[in-house]
Design a protein around this nucleic acid. Structure first.
Length: 834
RNA sequence: GGGCGAGUGGCGGAACGGCAGACGCGCCGGCCUUAGGAGCCGGUGUCGCAAGACGUGCGAGUUCGAAUCUCGCCUCGCCCACCA
């Protein structure tokens, strides 16, 4: 063995470790060599790896690094494994912040946005991420949004884009209509600024995503995180039940149609409730009730969603004077209007079954309406407290005519059938999901390519007139109307039917329309003749692996799926889903555990860190702090550890070789052990990169580097095993720390580039140890360890275990009750007990 | 209110039902140094001089064996929220 001083004498000095000496140089070289350019004609198997593009807010922060480094590591490994990887990047550059900057500071949104893009593009390069910048997509570029508009026209022609008057969520601060998905929380606030929204009636453009509700529920063959699939499923909110028509006591008035998931409780329907917005409300209101009903409806309309939902769930409503007939009991039941019934769900009207629905029950008790029990638990009587809410299985009908005694699960079908036979009902499905509202009364978005002719109404802009360009000379006063509405030049259009003067649509599209297809544009980003080249899309799509934040679970990720399905049905695409596999990264929070934002002042700027430690250290540190899908509050303590690790790698990869101090046999055993460490590390790291477990992968690289350092100290630094270990370490490290890996690879005289080398091969034969250390338990508690050769027979292991004095102490000379062996794992001796 | 997820050292976190705390930070001791805020070596769950005992939010259960599985509770986070 060498002495410590020997080791130190050799390990001291050597080339200085300073990432500033080489990081930028390599990035320039990679860029110049087009190392990450994906070629459509490359015969190797394609692999489309995509990470969500950012909004160009101004500067790259540590969260961008975190989000990008994970997939970059996978992309780099896949390239080395021989795949033809496409890993593009772009900018989601339409949207509100640019316009707000224009209002606040008088900078034109395009100038502000483009300056940000330029800055962020440069900052992205310092991350060392291997993006193919030749495929960059910028959605606010007319060369892109021209095709966003073209897609709108395709949807319009297919009947999937339509215009409708709608009460919409309106953010009074941002002065903009919001999609339902963009209104959050119990107080119904704007997802961007947090201001509570109000309702406004406006003529709006919608995409018919509801046509695809059922198909969007199908995740067959998709490798997506369970929580995301669940959120989309809940958002779509499919319910099966029945629709039932209740005749009303009024001449020539259509019946009230209701949707219910529990048609088996129809015998218990003792009143009906219409939403205030329901069209039959004015029809069925009697004259003596009219004043009160109109006041109630007007109040409900005036109230914001917040007030309507909060108010401590106090249920309010008004009797409208008319009655309906329960089709089963033939009883007259009163019709009420109440705002707890929502206009947008089901039919906007319900049959109220107060005995078995909590909300109806509350309402009935408030207004002293009759409560009739028609279901009881299969075992036992109704509970005394009269609060039995029917739920699912294991219930039996009571007081329900011919259906009495029938299990509820059976009665659902039987009663639905009878209603169908009577011609007043039948099975029905209802969804929570609504059509996607895409109109925005803002400037900085893709103009909707529609015009309005006084003669011929809404007309699509002819495709050869695209793009409808955003005018540059606009006034950005913060008003409720889009600045486009006051731009005379923009408004002027010519009707394609009659050639007369038409008025251009001034709404722009939701930015989620831009991002619903950007992954297609990456396949042929510079094709100015069409949205995408069908061959290129056929080659690259679908995306093999998509990464991004879980916050897009029901927004972007559902819209993109909808787009692909709709375009498939129009004949433009020939696959069903855009993203085969999905992984979500966690969020890096500020040190105060809050979401990073400029206003909170908790944004971590990576520049200070990179100038001090270099990009590799920052990348590796971010990937090391915990599971990638978990994120967490920013805490830079510990970055020194990563830097020290890279310093050690620097050193062991190029320090003077050390050989000869060990005895021959000892040296051979040391080499075997080092090769074992090398090959177990190759296997483990390969597996863990693929599973996005970067933190444990890096810990294993640290272990290997420690093993290499010890091997050097032990005097085998000039052996082939040592060289193999260092080469493997650099190759395995290359995805996470591309610069230092390249630099050391070059310094070791290897061929440029390390990033084009084959991924190290794992030899299982070298990874197995010939001796094992078996834990010996007594009654499940660790008491001793056995060191045995791998081929020791079980009987021998048992004999050795029982012979152990630590085991004997617990056996007290008695024979064991059992001895359990998990081959290669452990021995457990079970004592006879008392 | 409903759904989903998570609770492990001083800290970030490891651990196919099988050695709890890998790896790293921090801390303690040492070496080397004119010096060390560099580097290297060793130690570090708690209690205990030790042998050992106890330890994964709390309480039960299944099992030869539970951080891991089951049930109940507590706390935190995220999503949804009058959806008939």
């Amino acid at each position: 063995m060498t002495t410590r001083t020997d080791t130190q004498a050799r390990s001291a000095r050597g080339p200085r470790f300073d990432p500033a000496d080489y990081e930028q140089r390599w990035r320039d070289r990679w860029e110049a060599d087009g190392l990450y350019r994906a070629d459509d004609a490359d015969p190797r198997q394609k692999h489309y790896l995509l990470t969500m593009y950012p909004y160009p807010s101004g500067d790259l922060h540590i969260g961008h690094w975190y989000a990008a480094t994970g997939p970059d590591m996978v992309a780099r490994m896949r390239r080395m494994q021989g795949l033809n990887v496409m890993f593009p990047m772009g900018f989601d550059s339409f949207g509100l912040p640019a316009e707000n900057a224009a209002i606040d500071r008088g900078i034109h949104p395009a100038i502000w946005t483009n300056a940000n893009i330029e800055r962020m593009r440069a900052q992205f390069r310092t991350t060392g991420c291997g993006f193919d910048w030749s495929r960059e997509v910028v959605v606010s570029d007319p060369r892109y949004y021209r095709w966003t508009q073209w897609l709108f026209l395709q949807f319009y022609r297919a009947g999937l884009a339509y215009r409708s008057m709608a009460a919409v969520d309106w953010c009074p601060k941002d002065q903009v209509v919001l999609a339902r998905e963009q209104v959050e929380g119990a107080d119904r606030h704007c997802w961007r600024c947090g201001t509570p929204v109000i309702k406004r009636d406006l003529e709006q453009w919608f995409f018919r995503i509801t046509n695809y509700a059922d198909e969007l529920l199908d995740f067959t063959g998709m490798d997506w995180p369970e929580p995301i699939r669940l959120m989309q499923t809940n958002w779509i909110g499919r319910s099966e039940g029945a629709e039932i028509a209740f005749a009303v006591e009024a001449d020539e008035v259509e019946p009230i149609r209701v949707f219910t998931t529990r048609p088996d409780t129809v015998f218990g329907a003792t009143f009906m409730v219409l939403a205030p917005e329901h069209p039959l409300v004015p029809v069925l209101t009697t004259d003596e009730r009219r004043a009160e009903v109109e006041a109630y409806v007007a109040a409900a309309r005036r109230e914001t969603e917040i007030e309507r939902l909060s108010a401590d769930r106090q249920k309010t409503g008004v009797f409208i004077g008319s009655h309906a007939i329960n089709p089963m009991t033939q009883e007259r039941i009163p019709i009420w209007v109440a705002d707890y019934v929502l206009p947008g769900y089901g039919t906007g009207a319900i049959m109220a079954v107060p005995a078995h629905d909590e909300r109806d029950g509350t309402f009935a008790r408030t207004y002293e309406l009759p409560i009739r029990y028609v279901v009881r638990p299969a075992s036992g009587e109704l509970p005394d407290d009269q609060a039995f809410v029917a739920h699912t299985a294991d219930e039996v009908l009571v007081d329900s005519g011919e259906f009495t005694g029938m299990p509820a699960s059976e009665a659902i079908g039987a009663i639905t059938q009878q209603l169908a036979d009577l011609g007043i009902g039948g099975p029905a499905v209802s969804y929570k999901i609504r059509d996607w509202l895409v109109s925005r009364q803002r400037y900085w978005g893709a103009p909707i390519p529609i015009m309005y002719c006084p003669e011929h109404g809404a007309q699509p802009v002819p495709e050869d007139q695209l793009p409808v360009l955003l005018p540059e000379d606009v006034d950005f006063a913060p008003t409720a109307v889009s600045p486009l509405q006051s731009h005379a030049e923009f408004l002027k259009a010519t009707c394609p039917v009659c050639g007369g003067e038409a008025r251009r649509e001034t709404d722009t599209m939701d930015t989620f329309v831009d991002s619903a297809w950007y992954f297609l544009r990456y396949c042929s980003p510079n094709d100015d003749a069409r949205a995408w080249n069908p061959q290129a899309v056929a080659h690259w799509m679908p995306v093999d692996l998509y990464t991004g934040g879980a916050e897009h679970a029901v927004l972007h990720l559902m819209y993109a799926r909808f787009f692909v399905k709709a375009l498939r049905d129009m004949g433009h695409l020939s696959f069903d889903e855009p993203f085969v596999a999905l992984r979500n990264q966690g969020q890096i929070l500020g040190a105060d555990h809050q979401r990073m934002s400029k206003s909170r002042g908790n944004v971590v700027n990576p520049d200070d860190l990179t100038s001090r430690y270099g990009s590799d250290t920052v990348r590796l540190f971010l990937m090391f702090i915990g599971p990638w899908d978990q994120g967490g509050p920013w805490n830079p303590t510990g970055i020194e550890g990563i830097h020290r690790f890279l310093g050690r790698v620097w050193h062991i990869a190029q320090a003077e070789p050390t050989n000869g101090e060990s005895l021959l046999g000892e040296a051979q055993e040391l080499q075997r052990a080092l090769r074992r460490a090398t090959h177990t590390t190759i296997a483990a790291v390969t597996e863990e990169y693929g599973a996005f477990r970067f933190n444990t992968a890096i810990s294993k690289l640290m272990e290997l580097s420690n093993a290499i350092a010890h091997a050097r100290g032990a005097g085998i630094g000039a052996t082939a095993a040592y060289g193999e270990a260092v080469d493997a370490l650099l190759l395995l490290l290359a995805p996470g720390a591309p610069h230092i890996a390249e630099e050391l690879w070059a310094r070791r005289g290897r061929d440029y580039s390390i990033h084009q080398q084959p991924w190290p091969a794992y030899d299982p034969a070298l990874a197995v140890a010939d001796t094992l250390e078996l834990p010996v338990q007594v009654d499940g508690k660790l008491r001793d360890r056995l060191v045995v050769t791998r081929d020791t027979p079980a009987e021998e292991i048992e004999r050795l275990a029982l012979a152990s004095e630590h085991v004997q102490r617990y056996l007290d000379g008695r024979p064991p009750r059992r001895v359990i062996q998990v081959p290669g794992k452990l021995v457990n001796v079970v004592t006879p007990g008392d």
